[in-house]
Amino acid sequence: MTKSKMLPLDRLPHGLPARISKIGEGRIELNSAEPILEDLLLGLGFEEGAEIEIRHQGPLGGPLAVQVDGRLIALRPIDASAILVETEVSRQVSGMGA
């Protein structure tokens, strides 16, 4: 059984394909002091609807390498949390205990 689920990018399991649903409305709200992050993300090819997948993470909880729009982009989990993504989550594991 699958279900669509929204979550911030930094919580997306590695290797699970997802779609960007909103930039700037993830776990951290982008405030007016940080208008640059949104600009930078858009410039690098992050856009609503784009396919996205976490590929790698740097050692010791380092940055994430995400594949988006044919590009591999490195960003820190804190910044990734500003991106809300949508994914099909398999429910079979959580359903087992019932």
Partner: peptide, 8 residues
């Protein structure tokens, strides 16, 4: 500050 870069 942030890190945001392309891995070419």
């Amino acid at each position: 500050p942030r890190l945001l870069m392309e891995l070419p």
